[in-house]
Nucleic acid binder design. Structure first.
Lengths: 211, 211
DNA sequence: CAGCATCCGCTTTGATACTG
DNA sequence: CAGTATCAAAGCGGATGCTG
């Protein structure tokens, strides 16, 4: 393992998670939970398969990822984060917070997966009206759906279509993400082409006042 | 610039700050404030000079670092963080938080600079007794000193010797850092060779209860 | 000396092909 | 499905040279 050779906590952390792709692999495992090798490959457009194999070995040795044999219905080897790996969640959220302003730029031909909406949703949305009855909102980009549910002050974000959403927002990645993060006011996003179906007031319940 | 090509905030952030050395350069500028090129070189043991020049250009173009001409007493070009660069501080602190457990391992022949104590000090120490009169503690490793001052609920950490410290703690990096982070109880650190001079109670005022 | 640029041997990456 | 094998191209670290 290549190391910076500095007795500094930042350098030591980067020795372990600073290599290219490492934090994106952690992102995928955080978002998807236990995953098969091939699922990770699918969630990491652009990675070379030998690199993924390599990095997983590294991360396993560093105690961030572990392998285990899933019981019969699945019956294959799965990869998951250890507690030490889960402990990277706050770091990932900080990366999101700092990275979101970079998302205003054009998409060109970037890859996009709906699951990538879940971290920003967790970071920027919350239940502002715990006293009100639950609401559920579906975010749609292409054929990928993310469900955001607020109930009793709790927010739950899941990577699946909603059953009876109070509101569905759909459109290109930039508009949906911009709306979620508050970088784009809802009305402005709609003017720019964000599709909506249902009760727009449901969204206001989730949106924290601008920080 | 090499990019992951993913429309995801984590990936976009790493496109900019994920390259080797980048976050350590930000660390140095956070710790030292505006710095000359050569000072950065000194604070980054192991970096190749061409890489530093390269990365500084990158960071400048990304709006994280800026150059300016210092007025007469200095009379040279200095490098400093832009507000966008300063905004990386919470991320660096998360890296410290996650990285500190890696510091229990042996030092081997890692480089060490006293300034690297300041981020952990900020993260792990705080004024627990705002009502009491101010205290000042000096941390010493070799000939490098860091001063931690608590007064009225505020904590200030500076990279210089203290004037009239209530307490001086000195010893090898592992003992001083272990004490600051609370990984090593004070008494245990002293048994292991941490030197102290002054009022040990001053330290307890700064130490937050284990989280 | 401060602030780089150039060259060079080595390692890492990324794309593709192939295997149990 | 879950990787390994191969190889060209890019990046890295170290040394050295150039310029104000």
């Amino acid at each position: 393992m290549r190391t910076y050779g500095q007795y500094c906590a930042v350098a030591k952390a980067l020795d372990v998670i600073g290599d290219r792709w490492n934090l994106l692999i952690v992102r995928e495992l955080l978002l998807r939970g236990p995953s098969r090798y091939t699922d990770l490959l699918g969630g990491l457009p652009g990675i070379a398969t030998n690199l993924l194999a390599d990095r997983l070995r590294q991360l396993e040795q560093a105690g961030i990822v572990e392998r285990y044999d899933a019981p019969p219905p699945v019956a294959t080897t799965l990869l998951r984060l250890t507690p030490r790996g889960e402990a990277l969640r706050p770091l990932l959220l900080e990366l999101v917070r700092w990275g979101v302003p970079l998302m205003v730029e054009e998409v060109e031909d970037d890859a996009f997966l709906g699951e990538w909406l879940t971290l920003p949703a967790e970071l920027y949305l919350s239940d502002q009206r715990p006293d009100q009855p639950p609401v559920s909102i579906e975010l749609r980009v292409g054929d990928e759906a993310v469900t955001v549910e607020a109930a009793g002050g709790e927010l739950r974000v899941a990577q699946r279509p909603a059953e009876n959403p109070d509101l569905t927002l759909s459109g290109p990645p930039r508009l949906v993400l911009g709306t979620v993060t508050g970088m784009l006011p809802l009305q402005r996003a709609i003017e720019l082409g964000l599709q909506h179906e249902g009760d727009l007031a449901a969204f206001e319940r989730l949106q924290a006042p601008a920080p």
